[in-house]
Amino acid sequence: MESLIHARGLVKRFEGFTAVDGIDVDVRRGEAFGFLGPNGAGKSSTMRMIGCVSPPTDGVLRILGLDPRRDGPKIRAKLGVCPQLDNLDIELSVRENLTTYARFFGIPRRVARQRADELLEFVQLTERADSKVEPLSGGMKRRLTIARALVNEPEIVLLDEPTTGLDPQARHLVWERLFRLKQQGVTLVLTTHYMDEAEQLCDRLVVMDGGRIVAEGSPRALIEQYSTREVVELRFAAESQEAYAEKLAGLGERLEVLPDRILLYVADGDKAAAEVQRRSLAPASVLVRRSSLEDVFLHLTGRTLVD
């Protein structure tokens, strides 16, 4: 399988600290690939290296078969980049943001205008074409940034936290547009710390923590490997959940005590819930749910705040 992005032992060091600590990545054509991880895990640094705006400190990096150290402009010509913070041109109108950006790629004016109209349609901003950027909502700005990233018809689109800070409606619209891009065969590479986003969009993903890759696979495979099929969430009325933990011993593969509830990782949730009843522990509430990527994520990267 052709590898569009190929990294081996990739390292990014800044003065005094290592942001990316030797990662191996392969992204294949047409797939949606995710970098998951808490803040400071090294996701954005990795994205900037792939975007050829940050030279790797060490290791091998090939994008579309080319070396970013040597062929930066040539690679960037085929990338679309949607950065974490919108950096739209506030002195230009919505449409001009696209046409002007197209010119940076050397796209002829006539083609640029035509493509801008198509893309505005695609991200549902046609009605705001002549508006300035400033009054747009966060979701509109993000959609415009995504449209801008598509203006050169890229082979790979890099999206750094594409829906962070957006309201639910805006997030779903962005997801839906990204999904359509994927259907058209565009390779998507995204970072996120939203588990639902990763589950929705990614064919394959890596979980990063402290600059390293701690797990890799499809969302399904990761859940199977690092979590159980189901999770039972038990809330006890007592002040301390701790006291109940030992009474639940042997009920699941793993048990996690949180300040307000206890999580039981089990293969069969209903069976475990019945067993809890049988031991007459009488929790205030019982919730049986499917295991999610969030469980994997928290298991792998811990619950401690990293910021």
Partner: peptide, 14 residues
């Protein structure tokens, strides 16, 4: 402040 060049540098422009 406008972070304009960050956007431009994501294109082939050096």
């Amino acid at each position: 402040f406008m972070r304009l060049y960050e956007g431009i540098l994501a294109t082939p422009v050096r």
